[in-house]
Every structure is written in C-alpha cells, then in structure tokens.
C-alpha cells in the first residue's frame, strides 16, 4: 500500500514535471506574440497552434546529436541531465493543496528546495567548459557569477518567511500563512521573485545567454535532445520559481473554499506568477553585467537583510 502510494505520488509529480513546463512554454509563445501584436503559432494541432511544443519536441528528437570534436564528451553529454534533475526533485516538495496534497512532505522542504536549486549552476559550468567554445565559457562564467551572487538574496528572502512561520516545512509555512503577511513580507516577496528570475536566467537577467553577444552562451554547442533538455530545464525552472513564490509568499492554496479548491488556487497563483515572468521578458531590456551585479549586491541583499531584521522584530513583538 505504501509503495503504491509512493509510486502514485512520484507519478503525479512526474506528470506535473512534464505537463506544466509545456503549458508555460505554450503560454509564453502566445502571450509574447500577442504582446508584440502577433498571433504566434497557429497551425500545429489545428486550433491556435496548441500542439506547437509537441511538434517542437518531435523535431528535437529527430535532430542529429552533435558533440564537438574538441569537447569533453562525457561532461558535455551529462550536463543537460544535471540541469534538469534538480528541478524535478524540487517539484516533489511543493505542496499543491491542504493536508498531504504534496509529492513528499519534508520536514526541511524549504531548505531542500534551496539547496537543490543551487546545484543547477554546476550543470551550467559543466556545459560551458566542456563545449570547448569561448562563447560558451564566457556565458558559463557570467552565469556562475550571477547565480552565486543571487543565491544570497534568494536564500535570505526565503529565510525571512521561514522565520515568520517558524518552520522550514513548506506545507507548514503555507498553513501558517495569513493574508497580512502579503504586506509584512512584501520586500522579501519582491527580492525572492527577482532573485528567482536571476536564478533561472530569464530576461531581464539573461546575460549568460545574451544572444546578441554570446550566440547562446553555454548552450551554443548543443543540439537536438540535449538542447531540448536545457530548454525544458528553463521552463521547469519558471514553474519551480513561480510555485515557490506562490507557496512562500502568496499563501499557496489559501483562498475561498480552500478545503476543496486549494489545488486550484495554488495552480492559479503559480500561473499568475509565471505570467509575470513572461511579461517581464517581453517588456524589459536585458541588464548589463555590471548593473546585474549592482542590483544584487547593493539593492537586493540589503533589502533582504533589512527584511530579516523586520521579521525578527515582528516575531519577537508578537511572541
């Protein structure tokens, strides 16, 4: 019985892992197109191009899998998998609804999520170095500098909400969340979301893959399925960051009729945050490398630290 339940949970998370990123990707196709007064994909699947990403997947599978001769083969081939798996693991601990509607309730789920997301940078460095391409290497170094910098405000902002809730367990954090936290934790929310955007290297923080100067950064040499894995990792990244933001700061499954419709609220909040991620990509230009680091160290880190102090004060005052 236990094994059956475990298999069911892991299966459900895997389905979410495969479906949600495609949904986000398709939404990005369409939303981005309409924001630019275009229509986006219209043909694949007959109705408004709903099957475009499936068609893309088929295309990627058919493409030749090229490993450059000068590349470090094993590392080069391993990197996409290393990029993808951490996000899959993070999805396991994100609560979807009240009760035990979560892949795997972990006592220190938040810490687990933060630790695992941080592993992604190893994949970037692997891909960057093993490609034997200077654009790749430059992109990888930019990515590493960016990820190491933004990891700090990311973790600090998450620590603030963990402190407010007095637990590291994601389901418990959601359970103890109250609407007025929206105001109390607002700086942390903003810091977490911005740092999260930088963690998944989405515009306006896409300096590592800046296509106008670095071809495609650390992904330059990848083709076919391995490239698709990197793309999938990016979109799972959006899902993970959106879901974490919704869980930690927007109250997860809280909402009218949370007992029965909790999962819907969680999905809606995640979707709304993912929409923001797409919107920012369309509306804003890329940050320059120095602006990127300046934003991190001179704005986000101090704000996150101030939020920590504030959280501690309020906690002490309430106790």
């Amino acid at each position: 019985m236990d094994w059956l339940e475990l298999a069911l949970r892991v299966g459900a998370v895997t389905v979410a892992f495969l479906v949600l990123p495609l949904l986000v990707g398709q939404t990005e196709h369409k939303v981005m197109a309409h924001m630019q007064a275009r229509l986006g994909p219209m043909y694949a699947g007959a109705f408004h191009g709903w099957a475009q990403l499936i068609a893309d997947g088929v295309k990627f599978v058919q493409k030749e899998d090229i490993t450059p001769r000068a590349a470090d083969g094993p590392v080069f081939k391993l990197a996409p998998g290393v990029a993808l798996i951490p996000y899959l693991l993070v999805l396991l601990v994100i609560p979807l609804g009240p009760g035990d509607l979560v892949g795997q309730p972990l006592d220190i789920g938040l810490f687990f999520a933060l630790a695992i997301v941080g592993v992604g940078v190893v994949a970037v460095l692997m891909a960057a170095w093993s490609s034997a391409n200077k654009y790749s290497l430059l992109g990888g170094l930019r990515a590493a500098a960016q990820l190491m910098g933004y990891e700090l405000p990311f973790v600090l902002a998450a620590a603030s909400v963990a402190m407010a809730a007095g637990t590291l367990s994601l389901p418990l954090i959601v359970e103890r969340w109250e609407p007025w936290w929206l105001l109390w934790q607002l700086p942390a929310t903003l810091v977490f979301f911005i740092a999260g955007l930088a963690e998944i290297r989405r515009p306006p923080f896409d300096m590592p893959i800046a296509d106008s100067e670095l071809v495609f950064g650390y992904m330059t040499e990848y083709t076919g399925l391995r490239f698709a894995f990197f793309l999938l990792a990016e979109y799972v990244g959006i899902v993970v960051i959106s879901a974490l933001t919704a869980t930690l700061f927007l109250g997860g499954w809280h909402g009218p009729m949370a007992e029965s419709l909790g999962w819907l609220w969680m999905l809606l909040k995640t979707g709304a945050v993912a929409f923001l991620v797409i919107w920012f990509r369309v509306a804003w230009p890329r940050l320059r490398e120095d602006q990127l680091q300046r934003l991190c160290w001179l704005i986000l880190v101090p704000v996150a630290l101030a939020q920590l102090v504030l959280t501690a004060w309020v906690r002490v005052a309430m106790a």
């Binding site: 630790a115 592993v119 940078v121 460095l125 990820l147 190491m148 990891e151």
Partner: peptide, 9 residues
C-alpha cells in the same frame, strides 16, 4: 552549490 562552484569558477 557554493564551494565547488567557486572552485570550478
């Protein structure tokens, strides 16, 4: 996430 990455970097 941090030490090895710094080292590789």
């Amino acid at each position: 996430g941090a030490v090895v990455v710094l080292l590789l970097f």
